[in-house]
Write a protein that binds this DNA or RNA. Sequence first.
DNA 1: GGGACTAGTTTTTTT
DNA 2: AACTAGTCCC
Length: 788
Amino acid sequence: MNTDDDENAFMDAQMPLSRRALAARPAPYLDGLNSEQRRAVETLDGPVLMLAGAGTGKTRALTARIAHLLNTGHARPNEVLAVTFTNKAAREMKDRVAHLMGTGADGMPWLGTFHAINVKLLRRHAELAGLKSNFTILDTDDQVRLLKQVIAARGIDEKRWPARQLAALIDGWKNRALTPSQVPAADASAFNNRGIVLYDDYQVRLRDLNATDFGDLLLHMVTVFQSNPDLLEQYQRWFRYILVDEYQDTNVAQYLWLRLLAGGHRNICCVGDDDQSIYGWRGAEVGNILRFEKDFPGAAVIRLEQNYRSTGHILGAASGVIAGNRGRLGKTLWTDRDGGDKLRLIGHWDGEEEARWIGEELDALQGGTRGGRPYSLDEAAILVRASHQMRAFEDRFLTIGLPYRVIGGPRFYERLEIRDAMAYFRLVVSPADDLAFERIVNTPKRGLGDKAVQKIQRAARANGVPLVEGAKIVLAAGEMSGKGKAELTRFLSLLGQWHAEVLDEGHNHIELAEKILDESGYTAMWQNDKTPEAPGRLENLKELVKALEGFENLQGFLEHVALIMDNETDEGGAKVSIMTLHAAKGLEFPVVFLPGWEDGLFPSQRSMDESGETGLEEERRLAYVGITRAEELCTISFAANRRVYGQWQSALPSRFIDELPEAHVDVLTPPGLYGGGYGAAAGARGDSRIESAAASANVYNSPGWRRLQSRSGQRGTSQPKDSFAPVIDLQAVSAFAEGDRVFHQKFGYGTVLGTEGDKLSVGFDKAGEKHVVSRFVTSADMADNTPF
DNA sequence: GGGACTAGTTTTTTT
DNA sequence: AACTAGTCCC
């Protein structure tokens, strides 16, 4: 422990804190808390489990608790360890605590994500993990590329034993805090009996490269603490109070890490909701939260059960569904917001019709003809089980000109051009970064293909030097010729110049970054690229350079950026949000649509196949999370037919639909379509909600569903075409004429084939003929003109 | 080395 | 269907 933020504090750490500041200060953060929240805020000492149901004011209680800890002098800001999973959650907590305390934001150095906090710890104690403190953090892509090398080095056929699979296996072990030597014998057969050996190889390679992957950050620190009791004890003393958000999402490694650090004061407060545990598939252990009272004997368990978010019907429907799960800690959410609309249920012929219907509903909501008031699109969200469901909505909304935003999807720092640019920066800052070298040595094309790279690798290995040095050796030995020789010489010389500039104290890192992208030919590569994505990529590179402004230098940027994966730049007017159920956790919307409730899609077949009853329960929690996102209006829908991987498939409504308590549901019956299936089934089912499997059998035998099934044979008979008129902004007269070249964000370049009001029919070069609203396209000349 | 073609894959996602 | 990764051929 030797950095500035602690040192001063250490000096007066001798003085008993509690005595120092017990004089009661005003505590405005306590105002308006209910009695349970208040107990959660004021029960400071000893282990506390805060079971906070959806919408019960969890974040409020958590931030008030931190404020209370500080305000009463139980701890100084830097003695509180507060962990979240996402940067977003960390940021929100920081902001809210700062707001409550009326101070600046950065008083709490140990409030952050598991990963950010462990990077900080590991940089301090890197040598104890066999690393140097300037280690790099590999992302998933680097990880897979490295694993490919490791697999190849053992002479294993990568095609039969793919690196991605090995990556998943190793991640699984790391999630369980297992080093290669700790992997249980039962797992020895994994990956063709070579899993453990390859894991070991991989760890050795990482150490050689002075690199870690995400899983290592936790694993290394757990190992360091376990093998250095003195150090652990120091931190145990230091962190007087520990808070953990979303405890139900912790994996074994995170759990062990917390147990180690909480071992001294035992002042650990874990907040979570076992009913919202939806990350089991990536190593989260619901068991951690279920076991809390055993792990921490004498723990106070506080239940936040008053829901401030949703109406009674929405809450009732959600409770009815989640009641089907076993092994819950059990909470009974209640609200005094009675009345409101019942949850709506509607069936559709196919996925396209479902999208069309939701589009119409959104228009009606905006116009005030649905629900109690006019709604903004910002207040509505469509939550899907799998991201491929999004396309139907995007296509439909593009066609009718309904603004939408997709949340999630490829993140900024995962994009090809950003990763390439980052590799350049990494290499300039650390010339020994071999992975970065490999990535960009031939990007843009320099005539340095596999052959040349192999030569360089051989030379580097033979001399025990990084690839950059290997390349110099290859050149000196005269092993290169022609274009490759000239280009490699130039590349190395540029690298040298840039690196020298980085070392120069007076350099401007933003100018340097631009220079690197420019002189390397990287920018030019995309300027000369005529694919529809190229302008967007140049735009992203500009963004990247802009992001540098927030940092002192390139090193600082690289250090922090590896952990920041969120990218929420959102401008423009009101838009409906489309996202997965997973991405929706922690969010809330007045209006929520939950499409695609069909057995096989939701609950997902794969989840049930792979994890059986456990998988089904996690899916059910996902349903619970979905419904509880809604404040005022929640609409569940399903389609009888859906295109899956290009094949039409018919499906039965989700078994979860059958678990919705009838009293809270309105079954909508669109004209000409099967309806009432749910009602009929619900009547036959009686009231046995727990025996959901038995109950769903009834549903599938009910007259409604048999009718549904018999109809799935005759597709297209009475299917309404795109007959309804989309909302047309009368002022938006198309500025395009037949024959114009246009550019569209999603479809790329195309030629206008016809116009109709503000709607265009465009023959896209890549995507074929589409009907789009004119404001979604720009003139091809304008789009092309994106200087960097 | 680069473009065109082919085969194989396809949940959920953070860091 | 749509995308990627890999192969083949010039």
